[in-house]
Amino acid sequence: MAQSLKLQPFTSLGTPNNVLADDYVHGTFETYKFKASTTNGGKVEYKAKVSTAQKDGKFFVKVNDEGKFQFPFLDKYTFQLCQRRSGDVKLHFDLGNYTISNKSWNFFTNVKTDTTLSKFNFRLGTNYFGSICESNTRLELVPGDAPILTHRNYIKKGSVYYGGVFSLNLQALGLKRYDALVGYTADKYEANLKHESDSKDTKELQVGTLTATATYFHDSNTKLALEVQNKGHKFNPVFSVGAQRKVNSDLTVKGKVNNKLELSLASKYALNRQFTLVAGFQLALKEKNIVDFSKFPPLPIGLQLETNF
């Protein structure tokens, strides 16, 4: 049901290893999430990020929030409405799955605009889900601008997986992005190499960002990871090491540190079936004043409360 809504961002190849990526809620002081769903695919979501600052003795609070409303109809189609406080509005229609030549295809369309209706982005797309291959294609039309074609393939065959995504400006015939991923997974290990472009219109290839990640699965509850990332043509890599431990069915803790001595710690605790609390913070160990009392909070800490019904 609504397979186009289950995908990651269309131009992303994802992060196969989540030890060094997810649940580090240190960028915003507080994040609140509310989710409610029905058995037939209906869903309501609300997320609010509360950031705080202190300047000249005055305390400031800024709220960025967004809401999603999703419901199925006619037993085949799904409609989703998304709106952000910034004014962005998105209407998404999943047109269901169809069997063509004994293969399953999903079709969708969406429109992105704002509350003033001053701009429109129209998108049409299709997704193919095979036993070893996933293929996604989308055409984006913006009045007064060049059409953009985006295509992504992801293939997993045995222990090897690889994928690629590119976006092409059909008017200038210039690449907007061109990403690639290749990886290998075994019982105890996983390694992958990912390239992410600079997301700029160009007819020339650019180095972009290269990320190599290796993960060791000590057991079903413990993961260790090493990551090396380099941006641009200059060799100036950032090394990160991290670990994740599932303490029990309710609590997961994780941490990472890089060669810039930036330490991040996080925990995720299920209070009950309806409420989950995520807490994380980051310390710049190279800084003279790790705790800055001129700011609020004095540590870059993040709190996230997820509610599910």
Rank of each mutant, 00 (worst) to 15 (best):
S4Q: 02
S4N: 08
F10W: 00
N18D: 04
L20S: 01
L20P: 02
T28H: 15
E30S: 15
E30P: 14
K35D: 01
N40A: 07
G41L: 14
G41M: 11
G42S: 01
K43L: 15
K49W: 00
Q54P: 10
G57Y: 01
E66M: 12
K76P: 01
R85E: 14
V89L: 08
L91V: 04
L95K: 03
G96S: 02
N97G: 14
K103Q: 11
T109C: 12
K112N: 15
D114Q: 06
K119M: 10
K119Y: 04
F122R: 04
T126V: 05
C133R: 09
C133L: 15
I155G: 06
K157L: 05
Y161G: 03
G164S: 10
Q171Y: 12
G174T: 06
D179G: 11
Y184H: 06
T185M: 04
A191N: 10
K194R: 06
S199G: 08
V207I: 14
T209M: 08
L210F: 09
T211E: 07
A214N: 02
T215W: 06
T222D: 03
N236C: 15
S240V: 15
Q244R: 06
V247T: 05
L251A: 00
K256R: 08
K256T: 07
V257E: 12
V257Y: 11
N258H: 09
N258P: 02
A270R: 10
L271Q: 10
R273S: 07
F275K: 14
T276M: 05
V278D: 11
V278P: 11
V278M: 14
A284D: 08
N289D: 11
P300W: 07
I301Y: 01
